[in-house]
Amino acid sequence: MTDVDDPGPLPAGVAIESATPDDRLDVLRVLDAAMLETDAAALHARIDAGDALVARFERTGSVVGALVLTRPEPERRHVDAVAVRRQRRGRGIGSALVARAVRDARAESGVDAVTATFDADLTEFYADLGFSIEPTGDGRARGRLTVGSATPDDA
């Protein structure tokens, strides 16, 4: 079993980093190739907010994977999309992207969970990373990983 705290080693020469505005088109291409619906304007806003990650092949600088987060509630980060180029799949890149997103969420004050909604065939991927899984009944599932504890108002 993989773990979000130790997703295993990345392939040599691949780095996970925050997406920049210059990565926008590459991120769109990676997500599009995975047949994930993406709103280009919303993606631009997510990149500007620091809520997008890329897996970059260091030798060429090419983006081989991407992850986009949303902030549906102040205390929760949601994996809106994660994809890896077909020829790079199965090497731990997707796990490393999710692990980095979880580490970043843990570092944010008041964030207590990372969630995801995904096709049921990805259940094992998220379960292996430690997400608790709940089927939605429509061929999809929801995952939740507690990353900290938001401080409730005492008022």
Rank of each mutant, 00 (worst) to 15 (best):
A52S: 13
L53G: 04
A33V: 07
D128K: 14
E134V: 15
A41M: 10
G13T: 06
A113K: 05
R71Y: 01
A155T: 09
G94M: 08
I47T: 12
T123Q: 14
V79H: 03
D104M: 05
D26M: 11
V102F: 02
T123F: 05
A42K: 11
D5C: 07
G139P: 04
A116S: 12
D39H: 09
T123K: 13
V147D: 02
D5Y: 08
V147M: 05
P72W: 14
G143T: 06
G110K: 09
M35R: 13
S109F: 04
A66K: 09
E75V: 02
G143F: 05
G8Y: 10
A19F: 07
G139W: 02
A96E: 03
L69F: 06
R140Y: 05
A81P: 00
L97D: 08
P21I: 07
G8I: 13
R76D: 10
V84C: 09
G148R: 02
L129D: 10
L36G: 07
D23Q: 01
F118H: 11
S95L: 05
D3S: 15
G148A: 04
S132T: 15
T38L: 02
E134H: 12
Y126M: 04
R88F: 15
A81E: 01
L31T: 07
V82L: 04
T151H: 06
V68N: 01
T60Y: 06
D112R: 06
T123D: 11
T117Y: 07
D138E: 13
L25G: 12
L28K: 07
A150M: 03
V111W: 04
R89Q: 15
E124D: 14
R100K: 09
A19I: 12
A150L: 03
R85Q: 08
D154K: 09
R24S: 08
P21E: 08
R85F: 00
